[in-house]
Nucleic acid binder design. Structure first.
Length: 271
DNA sequence: GTAAACCTGGCA
DNA sequence: TGCCAGGTTTAC
């Protein structure tokens, strides 16, 4: 669910309802996700006002009135939602922040691979080491990808999934990007031409911008910050479509494993 | 590099 | 019953 377009969709939907609200109460219902949900977190949040929102890669960042930052990562199954009025906690709702002005921010995460933490050194380091945003036309370029390929013999899919190379891409979108670029996921980045890399960059921008515009992909359970489904799943060309016809040439889509993850491609359109 | 780990739910 | 899942980290 939560790759860059889904996290951005959550952010855009939450920003207008969260900014300006002050945290009155924090209810923690699990001892930890990827980081402890403890008294330190509660203390950091109580009495703070949310003054802004931003995103870096797959991380959602809420700016607090004391200058610190509240980080969220959705992992595989995390959902962040604002609920108006009274809210009684349900199964897998691990963190609830209630506001002075009313309403509750609810972090729901069945698989508990997510993260919610204030001003964490390890997270700051991850963000500092993160590659450019895919929509940053100055930094994410074919020349940049070319400069990264000298050091590695990895597949183009592995490289695009690496958050240190480019921020926010995951399994769904890398599959879709490589379809648009006409490249098989197992191709070694070393053997790609400058023209190939140009197509990868172009495809990345197109797919990510389009996915944000359609408010992300709802495969099974993604919802935005106010409970709406995304629409980009209807535009997937290859992801999870093994055996179905390629939208371009009707050849059946193939599935292979690359870097431990399911990968899908059209054997005719992608070389 | 690759495998296994974290955890739950859904589906064949 | 067993396998798979949008992610990341840790250990061979």
């Amino acid at each position: 669910m939560p790759e860059l377009p889904e996290v951005e969709t959550i952010r855009v939907s939450l920003d207008p309802v969260l900014v300006g609200r002050t945290i009155a109460d924090v209810e923690l219902r699990a001892p930890m996700l990827r980081r402890p949900l403890d008294q330190t977190l509660r203390t950091a949040l109580l009495g703070r006002r949310i003054v802004g929102s931003s995103r870096r890669g797959k991380y959602l960042l809420l700016a607090l009135s004391d200058g610190r930052t509240w980080f969220f990562h959705m992992g595989m199954s995390g959902r962040l939602r604002f609920v108006d009025g009274e809210h009684l906690p349900a199964l897998h709702e691990h963190l609830l922040a209630r506001f002075v002005e009313g309403g509750t921010l609810v972090f729901h995460d069945p698989r508990r691979f997510g993260l919610s933490v204030v001003e964490d050194a390890a997270v700051s380091k991850l963000l500092a080491d993160m590659g450019p945003e895919p929509l940053d036309e100055q930094r994410f370029t074919a020349q940049y990808l070319c400069s990264r390929r000298a050091t590695t013999r990895r597949s183009i899919k592995d490289v695009l999934m690496d958050q240190r190379v480019v921020a926010g891409l995951g399994n769904i979108y890398v599959n879709e990007i490589l379809f648009r670029a006409g490249l098989r996921p197992r191709r070694s980045i070393k053997r790609l031409t400058a023209a190939d890399l140009e197509r990868v960059v172009e495809a990345t921008r197109t797919v990510i911008a389009d996915a944000i515009e359609h408010r992300g992909s709802t495969i099974s359970d993604f919802l935005d910050g106010i409970g709406r489904r995304g629409g980009y799943q209807w535009r997937h060309c290859v992801y999870d479509r093994e055996g179905q016809p390629c939208p371009s040439c009707r050849t059946p889509i193939k599935a292979v494993i690359v870097g431990q993850r399911s990968s899908f491609y059209c054997p005719k359109c992608q070389r």
